[in-house]
Amino acid sequence: MNIFRLCGDMSHLAAIIILLLKMWKTRSVAGISGKSQILFATVFTARYLDLFTSFISIYNTCMKVFFIGTVYFTIYLIYMKFKATYDSNHDSFRVEFLIVPVGGLAFLVNHEFAPLEIIWTFSIYLESVAILPQLFMISKTGEAETITSHYLFALGSYRALYLCNWIYRYYAEGFFDLIAVVAGVVQTILYCDFFYLYITKVMKGKKISLPA
């Protein structure tokens, strides 16, 4: 554990809590992509199957259980409890265009051709693009609530901080995971446009609204 990794994890945790608070306080899931949340649920479920096979630390186990639990609760809020506020018309990204290529790639490019490892690889690749339905939804509606922007900023920062963690770990421990690093770079690049809008608008007190 190093400071970048810890900050990354805390940023990820903050993102999830911000999203839950937004939904709970406003009793609304408006502007939130249910499809991205389903993809994140798939990511966590696939990656954390190792809860049953290997123990890393109490911290690691608690975070995994929290991430899995909260993402399914988020899906419950979107598709059941606050269903009336869910904007399904604008959540029209075709997720099969992500799942199929990512699944194929996980089969072809992995560290070891073993079931659990392929599933782990799938989760790494899928996470890198799981935010696309959410970004697509914002580009379709042309706006994002400020609280949704905070959520996305925290979520994007998490993987950017992991990149710093991997640079640190490479020099400090000789640790280098090419699959995680490449996927992490892709994931972070996808947020760059949003980061720019966040810094130039949200930090100056304006909400994100895109020209029609």
Partner: peptide
Amino acid sequence: GGTAQPHDEL
């Protein structure tokens, strides 16, 4: 580079 299971990150 990199190794298979177990993975120690989240």
